[in-house]
Amino acid sequence: MELEDQWWKGQLAADIHQALKNKELKLPPYKGQSPQLNLRRYFADLISIISNSFWLCPTSRHLAVYLLDLFMDHYDVTVQQLHMVSLSCLLLASKFEDREDRVPKLETLNSLRCMSSLNLVLTKQGLLHMELLLLETFNWNLYLPTAAHFIDYYLSIAVLDGDLHDGWPMANLEKTKLYMAKYADYFLEVSLQDHVFLCFAPSLVAAACVAASRLILHLSPSWPPRLQRLTGFAWENLMPCVEKLLIAHDSDVKEANKQKCQQQQQQQQGQTVFHSSGQPATVTQYLQLPSSMHCPQKAPQAGLAAGHRSASYLGHPASGLQGPPQHGDAQPVATSLDPKPAVATRAYPVSSHYSYPAACFDR
């Protein structure tokens, strides 16, 4: 959002953070009512894969997915059109958040292996029409904070000398900070993959990512007063979001262990060599103690879970993404979309509304 590099280290960091907090109070509501909601995860992964191909910053990726969520929430969009919408959201977000030289070019996009595997061809006119439709939908306002906009500010004091590891002083502060950053990024990507996290304010999700990382790393207290003052969230506020993040983490670790077990069984010609000692601590174990005493007795795996669902952590080639129904031969994507009526599905509201006219969202 036109912020200078490493703004969280500057003298205006507190003011910028407060401006972001004020802006998130005016974010549009999200109702989770898209008929294509079951495809949302696929297109979020597609955005992640392509953003990683161009080394786009995390705020570009998160803003792109958020734009996609809001657009899908208010329009009936075909699978074919969703590809165009997703890529247009990424282009708009990168133009708003990233350096100009990193904004994907049409020719480069069409040359990606994932595009050919999807039998998808983008046209300049199609992209321009879709970008214009998106801008009109959001009333030309892309100043929409996401959790990625807050995370670096919170990470600036996430680990300090006074913290304890398993009840003992930290042996290596810099290494702990490195692991903290990796786990925070991991949880940030977890939050990107499930629309249920849109029921939380972006700043709360970012704070919960830091809190979950401290739990995984056995740092105590798990939510020190300095982080409560900086973020404005008490431990009780973070609990629901932290629990969802830890459930996803446990699921990822179990999946990674399952895959490892299968590989070992193949290598040992069917002999079982998997041991239960590699299982992670459960979410209940993480959350059963008050925040001032949190220090789980049994650690999960030290590294990031290899089975994490995010494209940015899987590290697989773009061509490995398996898409929804095939589109047939390569062809330009249509951009005409019709507003849809309200759909009676579960809602995930954000406790705020637009502060500016947005007739396209009115019912």
Rank of each mutant, 00 (worst) to 15 (best):
A305G: 06
E100K: 15
L27A: 10
Y75D: 02
P300F: 07
H294Y: 08
K9S: 08
N257A: 10
D76P: 01
Y186C: 05
H218A: 10
D69H: 13
C57I: 11
A211P: 01
M293C: 08
S117G: 04
M293S: 12
E243Y: 06
K105I: 06
Y313P: 00
S213L: 06
Q81A: 15
Y348M: 15
V253W: 04
Y348P: 00
K175T: 09
D76C: 12
L20G: 07
D101N: 15
I216L: 11
Q269P: 00
E174Y: 08
E236Y: 09
P332R: 12
A311T: 02
W55C: 13
L135N: 08
G323W: 06
A334R: 12
S156H: 11
G307P: 01
G307L: 06
L304K: 12
K244I: 05
A201P: 01
A184M: 04
Y348T: 13
S156D: 05
H149D: 15
A208H: 08
S312P: 00
P349C: 12
L109T: 04
K31E: 12
V283A: 14
W7P: 01
S222N: 03
W8D: 06
L198T: 07
R102W: 01
P202F: 10
Q6S: 13
F71M: 09
A299D: 05
F361N: 07
P280D: 09
Q33M: 11
E243L: 08
L164W: 00
A342P: 00
S220G: 02
R229Y: 02
T108S: 15
A248Y: 02
V343P: 00
S310W: 02
L135D: 02
A281Q: 14
S355G: 15
F233Y: 14
Y153G: 07
Y42N: 09
A299H: 08
I16C: 02
L3T: 06
A318Y: 03
G320W: 13
L134N: 05
D45K: 15
L56E: 04
S60G: 04
S276H: 13
Q269V: 03
L112A: 07
A248L: 05
E107W: 13
P332E: 02
A19M: 05
V103R: 12
L118R: 14
P325W: 09
P339W: 08
M180P: 00
H195A: 12
S276M: 14
S222D: 00
H218K: 15
N139Q: 14
Q268C: 09
I50H: 06
Q266N: 11
S156C: 06
P290R: 11
C209P: 00
A212R: 09
S222K: 03
F361Y: 09
T123G: 10
Q36L: 11
T108E: 13
N22A: 14
N110A: 09
H308K: 13
L67G: 04
R41V: 02
K182T: 03
H353S: 15
F150M: 07
F96C: 10
Q18F: 08
Q193C: 11
I247A: 12
P324E: 08
A358H: 11
Y30G: 11
P35N: 12
A299L: 08
D101R: 15
P35D: 08
H308L: 09
A201G: 05
L90T: 05
A171T: 11
Q301N: 12
G32C: 09
S60P: 00
H74T: 10
V77M: 04
E174F: 07
L109M: 10
E189I: 03
